[in-house]
Amino acid sequence: MEELDRVGPRLREARLAKGLTLEAVANRSGMSVSTLSRLESGKRQATLALLIPVTRQLGIRIDDLVRPESADPRVRRPAVRHNGMVIAPLTLEDSPVSTYKITYAPRDDLPALKTHDGFEWVYVLSGRLRLRLGDQDLVLARGEAAEFDTRTPHAMSAVGSRPAEVISIFNAEGERIHTHDRDSHA
């Protein structure tokens, strides 16, 4: 079904959701009941001259009538390997918040401390995660979480002989830095 073919049914849906009759909306919009009925059924071509008064009466935008159908919600982005980590995206690329499952390989040394704009939230799924945050040197175990301002110097790695699996959530600023960093070193 084309986007324009959805305009009529969406008009009807919006009208019914407001509990309004064809007569009430048509009269307030300055058109005949027949014209509105034909618009809703798709028997009359939708024009801006017809849609603007109707959408105003219904309290909706014209964009609401021609929005695309919901996209496939499944995340199908490949995991990447970078500096001993496996980074698997858990959100769509255009998501307002970016979430990743990151597996940190065990290592003897801590990566260099980094700073950047943003915030990060970390939840440990398995293993133990070393989080160096400024002067603090913390070890987070399974089920523990941390939230921090990424302008504080920080670094993370697995502790012990097993990998640490974590869920990391970034706001837009934090994600941009991590994406840029991954791209520049890949």
Rank of each mutant, 00 (worst) to 15 (best):
V86N: 02
S98N: 09
R128V: 04
K43V: 00
F119W: 14
E13K: 09
A145D: 12
V7K: 05
R162I: 00
R76Y: 05
I102W: 04
V124N: 07
L11I: 11
D64T: 01
A145H: 13
R15W: 04
L133C: 14
D109V: 14
T21M: 04
V54P: 02
M156T: 13
V80H: 09
A145I: 05
G118V: 07
I62N: 03
S70W: 06
L16I: 08
T55K: 04
T91Y: 04
H154G: 07
T99H: 00
S32W: 03
D137A: 03
E40L: 04
V7Q: 05
G30H: 13
G127M: 03
L58I: 09
F148L: 10
S37W: 01
Y123P: 00
T99N: 00
A26W: 07
L11G: 10
A145N: 12
E2T: 15
S161W: 00
L16F: 02
V159P: 02
L113H: 04
E69H: 13
A164Y: 09
D149L: 06
T152R: 07
Y123V: 05
G19I: 08
L110C: 04
R142G: 08
R77E: 11
P73N: 07
G8T: 02
H178F: 10
G160W: 06
A88R: 15
R15K: 06
S29C: 09
A172D: 14
T152I: 15
M1T: 11
V159Q: 14
D108V: 14
I102A: 05
D63V: 07
H82P: 00
A186W: 05
S70A: 15
